[in-house]
Measured scan of single mutants.
Amino acid sequence: TYYTVKSGDTLNKIAAQYGVSVANLRSWSGISGDLIFVGQKLIVKKG
């Protein structure tokens, strides 16, 4: 599943919304830090 980052989103908010960890969200999407951008597509795998 892809999630497109919206204004005001954080990795914590997105992870909580999908019931996954921030570490997994980073790993799946190839992100090393906490910086995400509006319009960026993140990969989300539901448990």
Rank of each mutant, 00 (worst) to 15 (best):
V44I: 15
T4W: 12
Q40W: 06
N12E: 15
Y2N: 07
V22P: 08
G8I: 03
T10W: 03
G8F: 05
L35F: 13
G47N: 13
W28C: 04
V44N: 02
A23S: 11
A23Y: 08
Y2A: 08
D34Y: 09
Y2I: 13
Q17P: 00
Q17W: 12
V20E: 07
A16F: 10
V20C: 10
I36Y: 03
Y3V: 08
T1V: 14
K41E: 10
W28M: 08
V44Y: 04
T10Y: 03
Q40M: 11
G8P: 02
A16Q: 12
I31H: 04
G39R: 03
V44S: 02
I31S: 03
I43V: 13
G47M: 12
I43E: 06
K6C: 07
A23N: 10
K46H: 13
T1Q: 13
G30N: 12
K13M: 12
G33F: 07
V22F: 03
L35K: 13
A16I: 11
W28K: 02
D9G: 01
Y2M: 10
D9S: 01
L11S: 01
N12Y: 15
L42R: 00
V38Q: 08
G39C: 04
T4K: 08
G39I: 05
S7W: 12
S29L: 05
N24Q: 15
Y3W: 04
L25Q: 00
G33V: 07
G33M: 07
K46A: 14
V22K: 07
Y18W: 12
Q17F: 13
G47C: 12
K41S: 09
I36T: 03
N24R: 09
S27N: 12
D9E: 04
N24I: 12
G30T: 06
A23G: 09
S29F: 05
G8W: 04
S29G: 07
T4Y: 14
V22Y: 03
K13T: 15
I31M: 09
T10H: 04
Q17K: 13
Q17Y: 13
I36F: 06
S27A: 15
K45M: 13
W28I: 05
A15R: 01
Y2T: 11
I43D: 03
G47W: 12
Y2K: 06
Y3M: 04
T10S: 09
F37E: 10
N12Q: 15
V20K: 01
I14F: 01
A16R: 12
L25F: 03
L42C: 03
N12P: 13
K13H: 10
K46V: 15
T4D: 05
S21D: 08
L11D: 00
S21M: 06
V5H: 01
T1C: 15
N24K: 10
V5R: 00
I43G: 03
K41V: 15
Y2G: 06
R26E: 06
L25V: 10
S7T: 13
I31L: 14
